[in-house]
Design a protein around this nucleic acid. Structure first.
Length: 509
RNA sequence: GGUCCGUUCGUCUAGGGGUUAGGACACCAGAUUUUCAUUCUGGCAACACGGGUUCGAUUCCCGUACGGACUACCA
């Protein structure tokens, strides 16, 4: 088997879409599984759509999710350059070769003429209005014009494109690794533009030429390319490269969560979830789109989730490290149908991966958020708070939300609990507890439990009846982590001042 | 419109000529947790439809419906 060399070939027209991340991931997994090479190629042949910063964003995003590149712009490699704009001269050489061997031709038609042709064809029912074997002889190109005329026009600097001469009637076959045999009749394919009038190649030429020159073994890309894949097969054939043609695998699309259709930024915005891996500020509108990273998604969770959108190992294991994904991954196990983007599942993965972290790791997130709020906290305390909160978080930022009361004493209390649970019994226990705790040296969770035990026993009040009130007095809220642990973290001084405050503001009844 | 691709619980999916059609997320209920969350147990819930082929089809074939992608000098 030939060396596995795969490429991820985005065009730098904006932020990297989450679907693109999945495509990159599948490429990466295949490369690693076979000790092959993962290549990044920037497809920047459309100068009009070029967005500043997009390439940098793509590289940062890939790096954040852990997709490592073996070759690419900046990194370099044996087939550099990896930016198509820097390979410009290469393509025209091959386009000329196609003209010479009769599989391509110059075309001089301008936009108006093309439109006129399409309109003309639209009138005739049934016909697909396209530049192809049925229409090219009616157009202005090197097939209809004399050689002298063609030379004259080129010399005069007339704008021209180079088109592939697609045969009139031929079955074009392609064996897709995911979908099996796909057959398209050549009459359905139009004479695609290979070289644009600005001298840049189109995707169709550039992708074939580069994949060949870069010795790409597998083309793994989105399903939107399937209809033009036969055209690429033809191009390989006419360039004499059919034997070296890479294997194709067209990935099912990522669909919007409700209804149908390709997942778009609009959908994500509407449903309130990110669609880009990292924050992205649109240079045109200056609008900021929040990324998965900034939302609190862990890269390993995102990757696991993404890997399972359209692929599965056939076992019942759901949690996979990148290493496990690499060894389990198989192109053949990728499904054919589009997958709806279920953010709920993504959250679940995040929760799983977050929980697997140590208290110290979680504490680091907490400390970061605290710093932003200007709150000082030592590592040990942060770690014990993280430990108390770990079972109830989906995102790192949940800790600061759920644990805010550890740092900021409540000023108001949950009204429901205050109304229902703040009664004579609660007041009796709490005031007694306050006095006991105030004089203790080191308030551990065990000590807190035993003091509470003693107080409630002495007053003959069941603990269950006052716990809610106690929690409310301490935290202001109605729910939270284990109360004894909460008290231990708060410390005896803070506990007694908070209880004191509650007794004073809510009254002793 | 044309071409291509697709269709198993609400979602991601396993499976495959004879199965109680399996798992996960979500949801619901119960247990534990004196709260909430966790955890555990249980529950709800699917082979788009119609024809074939076959002793038997959700699985194979053909249609239909529905959905999607593509249909640029964009990728």
């Amino acid at each position: 088997m030939r060396e596995v060399r795969v490429r991820f070939a985005p065009s730098p027209t904006g932020a990297l879409h989450i679907g693109g991340v999945r495509t990159a991931l599948y490429n990466f997994l295949l490369a690693r599984k076979h000790q092959g090479k993962m290549i990044l190629r920037i497809e920047d042949t459309d100068q009009n759509r070029y967005v500043l910063g997009a390439e940098e964003y793509i590289k940062e995003a890939l790096s954040w999710v852990g997709i490592e590149l073996d070759e690419g712009p900046d990194i370099g490699g044996p087939y550099a350059p990896y930016r198509q704009s820097e390979r410009k001269t290469i393509y025209s050489e091959y386009a000329k070769r196609l003209i010479e061997n009769g599989h391509a031709y110059y075309a001089f038609d301008n936009t108006e003429e093309l439109e006129a042709m399409r309109n003309r064809l639209k009138e005739k029912k049934g016909a697909n209005p396209q530049y192809d074997s049925t229409t090219r002889m009616e157009m202005k190109n090197s097939l209809t014009l004399s050689k002298e005329e063609v030379d004259k026009r080129i010399k005069a600097g007339d704008h021209f494109v180079i088109r592939l001469k697609v045969p009139a009637s031929e079955e074009v076959e392609l064996n897709d690794l995911i979908r099996g045999k796909v057959v398209v009749h050549s009459s359905q394919i139009d004479d695609k533009v290979l070289m644009k009038s600005d001298g840049m190649p189109t995707y169709h030429l550039a992708n074939v030429v580069d994949d060949y020159l870069m010795k790409i073994s597998h083309v793994i890309r989105g399903e939107e390319w399937l209809p033009s894949a036969p055209l690429h097969v033809l191009t390989y054939r006419y360039l004499g490269w059919e034997k070296e043609m890479p294997a194709f695998a067209h990935l099912p699309l990522l669909l919007k969560p409700d209804g149908n259709g390709k997942l778009s930024k609009r959908d994500a915005d509407q449903m309130g979830f990110p669609i880009f891996p990292l924050n992205w500020t649109d240079p045109k509108t200056n609008e900021l789109a929040e990324g998965f990273k900034e939302r609190g998604y862990l890269p390993e969770a995102l990757i696991n989730f993404l890997a399972f959108l359209g692929w599965n190992p056939g076992t019942e294991q759901e949690l996979f490290s990148v290493e496990e994904l690499i060894s389990a991954f198989e192109l053949e196990r990728i499904g054919k149908a589009g997958a709806k983007f279920d953010i709920q599942k993504a959250k679940w993965y995040n929760q799983q991966y977050l929980r697997a972290k140590t208290d110290e790791e979680l504490a680091r997130y907490l400390l970061h958020d605290l710093k932003e709020l200007g709150i000082v906290c030592d590592k040990e305390k942060a770690a014990s708070i993280a430990n108390a909160l770990r079972e109830r978080i989906t995102f790192p930022s949940d800790m600061i939300e759920l644990g805010r009361f550890f740092f900021i004493a409540p000023e108001t209390f949950d009204e429901k609990i205050a109304a229902k649970k703040w009664n004579d019994e609660a007041v009796a226990v709490i005031s007694s507890l306050k006095d006991e705790i105030a004089i203790i040296e080191n308030l551990t969770a065990e000590a807190a439990a035993s003091i509470l035990e003693q107080v409630t026993a002495r007053l003959a009040i069941p603990q269950g009846k006052i716990m809610q009130a106690l929690r409310m007095a301490l935290t202001g809220g109605a729910s939270g982590p284990d109360l004894m642990i909460t008290m231990a973290i708060l410390g005896n001084h803070e506990v007694s001042t908070r209880l004191d405050y509650a007794l004073k503001t809510l009254g002793r009844k």
